[in-house]
Amino acid sequence: MIEFENVAYSYGGGELLSDISLKLSPGSFHFLTGPSGSGKTTFLKLCYGALLPTSGQVRLFDRDVRSFTRDDMAMTRRRVGVVHQDCQFLDHLTLADNVALSLTVSGRDHFDEMANLSELLNWVGLKSRANALPAELSGGERQRAALARAIIMSPDVILADEPTGNVDWEMSQRLLTLLVELNKMGKTILIASHDLALIRSAKSQVQARVLRISNRRLQLAGADL
């Protein structure tokens, strides 16, 4: 699904990530942790092709990302659901329209899909907020809307960057439950988070592996988490 082979990345200065090899198998649940600035967001961007490795190879769906055309890249974005750190909504569209954006841009905003949309909004508990503008949403509502948008195309993989970044404990548990549910439906999940309490609580609900970026390298965290 997503494979890294001796991947290194640098933004131009020194290497931020070095010698990373990894294979996310279908249906797996991973956490990615590490201190702020260690490169978690960068790693996720490498995972969905927003960045190309400076050396090594990243393969998405068995193809080297370097061989992707711009259209290939757009198609890949539809198969990988991404919950961005800062959500990234279009401010002039309602929550429902923002959630449906992937459908809209792929020309699939037909009636039956729209029925799914209201089901989906219901699932994340935002049905009553469907017509609110992004500026009117709370942090937790934004995060849930971002998650809904990431999964509306029923992607095989869901990448979430600090999905519980600015929400309270209760809301972070709610989001986690949604992600665990998605994993039970067979989706591959990768969550970048420095919230260790969240990770601990997740490990009691699902078989999750924890990866840690430390000294530019990726390690499998031990049982201490």
Binding site: R70, A74, R77, Q88, L90, L101, S102, V105, S106
Partner: peptide
């Protein structure tokens, strides 16, 4: 910014 978001959700350049 709008273009960046559209890209993120899989809009093709032509769209």
């Amino acid at each position: 910014q709008v273009i960046a978001v559209l890209r993120l959700v899989g809009a093709r350049d032509a769209y």
